[in-house]
Amino acid sequence: MANDREILREIWEGKIPVRFTLYPDEVYELQQPDEFYLMVPRLSYFPLVIDKVKKHFIRYVSNDKNDQEMWLEYDGQPVKWHFPIGLLFDLLVGTGPDLGLPWHIVVHFEKFPETQIFRLNSKDLVEAHFMACLKEADVLKHRGQIVSSMQKKDHNQLWSGLQNDKFDQFWAVNRKLMEVSGEVDHFKYIPFRIYDIEGFYKQKLVKPVSDEGQRKTLNDLLMEMYPKRATSVKVLTHGMFPPLNTPLQWMSEHLSYPDNFLHLCLV
């Protein structure tokens, strides 16, 4: 059970300051637009929080371009906005004494990079993507039995809890997804993805306990994933480095993103 409520709260409240600017070549008006600043929740998704950014910049781009889809760029690369914001930050910016905050994101309205990023031009599409991840996580944890036994209103409550930044509303339902069922005190498999520096991720079926019934730790997971270099890597998630002896089951219950996956970045 996800019992350490302070941790869940702390994770939920993580925010990142972002500075948005419009790509200079796309400015059509004589006057350059002001930058736009936003404090965004780490657990949310960019397409859910950038309505105001779009409204701010769209009047500066050519009229025949403004029906085009907005997209975001960081450091010359399109931002894969189907990933949660906190994961993107850990992946693209990382950690260190100089994070260069606020995070500088460039806004585009032209040449949507359609082969590289998802078209998430409606909240329904983001919701469908989110629910698909949540279902997949439940397939790994409980053979999908919890999600499929839930009612539509529970699904809606999860989604609106996330969308409206309502911790209690979200966790009232998510708690059920974090429960262990029946005789065992752990999930079947741990839903996780581990990302390398190039932004590619790996998944694997990893159980939270060993064949002897011992609780596995983050270190065991790294050994299973990268037997040759497990000792030389660190894992970054939610802007912090969890100790290598953290039990996987506890991590899954407390450090998963709202999509119920652990998103771990290799450093």
Binding site: T115, R119, H129, A132, V139
Partner: peptide
């Protein structure tokens, strides 16, 4: 239409229209 959505291709990790596996 929601049976057909863009998902990450598991190998290429780029968006592909995918019939949901559930």
């Amino acid at each position: 239409v929601l049976v057909l959505t863009q998902m990450d291709h598991p190998v290429l990790q780029r968006p592909f229209f995918t019939l949901h596996p559930c």
